[in-house]
Design a binder for these strands. Structure first.
Lengths: 207, 207, 207, 207
DNA sequence: AATTAATCGAGACGGTACGTCGGGTCTTATG
DNA sequence: CATAAGACCCGACGTACCGTCTCGATTAATT
């Protein structure tokens, strides 16, 4: 997901001094912390560099600009949200919803949402990123649904994409609403809401 | 929704030169156009003032800062989204979903979403606004559901807030995804998706 | 000599807010002080702006870059060096030499010399400036010599430009040499050296 | 004159890879060319290293910093300026003046002047260098004068230092002025000016 | 009619952050 | 070991924008 290097396991060593190993991660961590503390306006490249104990040029050597850094920092923390397999569709969806609630509860996850919105507003520049974040998350639901179909829990012709969108979107809206009064959801609330959400999506409102 | 003055139809004339009548609207239009063309990073107050043919002080006389202007410009276009009454719950929800899709399809509505995200990230500053935008939209669903309960379409104990969150959120996620490849949804697609979404919410996935 | 405005007494008022009157001078003073304290490497635009109590944009609104500011600041302090008229050629030249010695003794004057050297190295960019500083100073000697010719002190056909170059140059070289051991010339030394210099130029070495 | 190592012809071989033979000279040449083309502001160590086809560390291995490199590059070409003996004082001085004119005409010599100015501005760091360049040059005049005294051309009590300063300084000022219009002196002009200068210094203006 | 006061366009102002660049140091793989 | 390459930290550069301010010029409502 990183902008800075291809994932091809190229063992080729370049000539000069190699890039400091820990720097990448230290910068990303610093970026998330800075964003969490100061919000978007107050998120400074100088601040990130200082907190990471790194020169600004070291940051700009790896990321093109502020957006690219935040983008990368943010997508690093949303990779494993959907890696669940509880044996039942309802269980899988509940676990996913809980993970999503927790992810968007903390500033890093929230920052990701901000970046996604930006990216969608300027798709020619950041298009690839949003795909990585958004569609991947919807995809997990598709995989869960396929397992459910294989188990006979779900009709084969049911399009699961809409379910994913509902769950993903509902979590966002609820987090949005909940952040307004300055507080965030407790773990118990998250469990309750996740169950209600999944029940609605699976059983419908008119049952 | 304007920040600058109460809506009380006060006919009282102040002493000095009255504010130029068209200015308010010209500025809002300019703001939406600038945002639509350049996105957030590229949306500058100087740019808005120049495009509106107005001095910067004229803008700052009416809005406190950049956020307030964008907020106002944006929320002016989202007031009537839920004013529908088709006689059936399914029809109401479909109409609402269609309106939401259309709203978030153009840059003005999209900008609103960004402002909401920002506001939620800094609730102490912009909290009031997000309430106006977010909860109001969910509220419409509540009213629709109440009418449906009165008509006997829906069980009285069913909590409609989740339905609103699902619909609202799903539209957001779908718009997000759709903006990625540089194109937006056609009206036909919107109709199809709105129906599918409402069916899912009303009937559930496991029917 | 200022880069920022023509000297034509144009009473025409421009439209916006007029430039703060004292700013120009405050910035120049700050520049000379900063240069005097920290030298060239250590002479910072941020430092100048801060010391002058002024934003950086205010500085860059008036001067194109660092060089232009230092150039202007420096040439402002060398305008009256040759305004002397003692009644005799020898007296005039002595007064000029004393003034030059004193001028190059303090950091502001010295900075001017550096700028002149730079300018001569890149004449396409700063050519006009060096003329203002260098040739004007030589010119003073020409005027002194003309007065001397009118008084009958000097042969009419004697080219005075060489005299000016000798005096100007000798002061530079002596100041150069003297700054090496970390100390500068006292006023008495200046008087002595000025006399010796003028005597040499007027009477020659082989008298 | 190199900063990096004594000139003692030590035939002792050190242990590792020997220094690339041509590097020293290639770097010096590159430095002079870079200075000649871009002037002081535009003279960068990266540029020198690249032009010399050498790593930056190779440069810093031999010279302590930018000043040291330029200093060295520059002083290599000013060693033999005063090695003249024509048999008469007037002839010696003329030859010296001609050499000086020629020296300061090309960028290398000019760069030396710039370095001298810098050095005088920060004597604690570069003091030794300026002495080497400045006083040595004045010294030549002293030696010429001593020979002249021995020949009976000059009164024994006449202080020759002032003569040297006059000649040295006048050449600088004239070169300064001449570089302004983008052109430099021709050899004929140099001869003429050298003669006029020496005549002034030897015979005085009031003869 | 004269006065008063709010608003207007324009643009300078003090700040702050941007992304770039250069200096001088450090750390590798390669001779 | 020395070298070449180039990443590293630092800090200044010149630019852009924010939100404020100060002008002269309008434009009513009030004297």
């Amino acid at each position: 997901m990183s902008t800075s290097q291809g994932s091809t396991g190229e063992p080729r060593r370049s000539r000069g001094r190699p890039r400091t190993p820990g720097a990448e991660q230290r910068i990303i961590d610093a970026a998330l912390e800075e964003y969490g503390e100061h919000g978007w306006s107050g998120f400074t490249m100088d601040g990130v560099a200082r907190r990471a104990g790194v020169g600004k040029s070291t940051v700009y050597l790896r990321w093109q600009d502020k957006d690219a850094l935040l983008t990368d920092a943010v997508s690093a923390s949303s990779d494993t949200l959907g890696n669940v397999d509880t044996g039942s569709l309802r269980g899988d969806l509940r676990a996913l919803a809980v993970n999503l609630f927790r992810h968007y509860r903390d500033p890093a996850g929230w920052a990701g949402l901000r970046v996604v919105i930006d990216a969608a507003g300027a798709p020619e520049q950041l298009g690839g990123f949003t795909q990585a974040v958004t569609e991947v998350q919807v995809d997990w639901v598709v995989q869960m649904a396929e397992r459910a179909v294989a188990r006979g829990e779900l009709a084969a012709d049911y399009p699961p994409v809409e379910m994913g969108q509902c769950i993903y979107g509902s979590v966002i809206v609820q987090t949005l609403t909940r952040r307004l009064d300055g507080r965030t959801l407790t773990d118990e609330e998250i469990e309750t809401r996740a169950s209600a959400l999944v029940d609605l999506v699976l059983d419908g409102a008119t049952t």
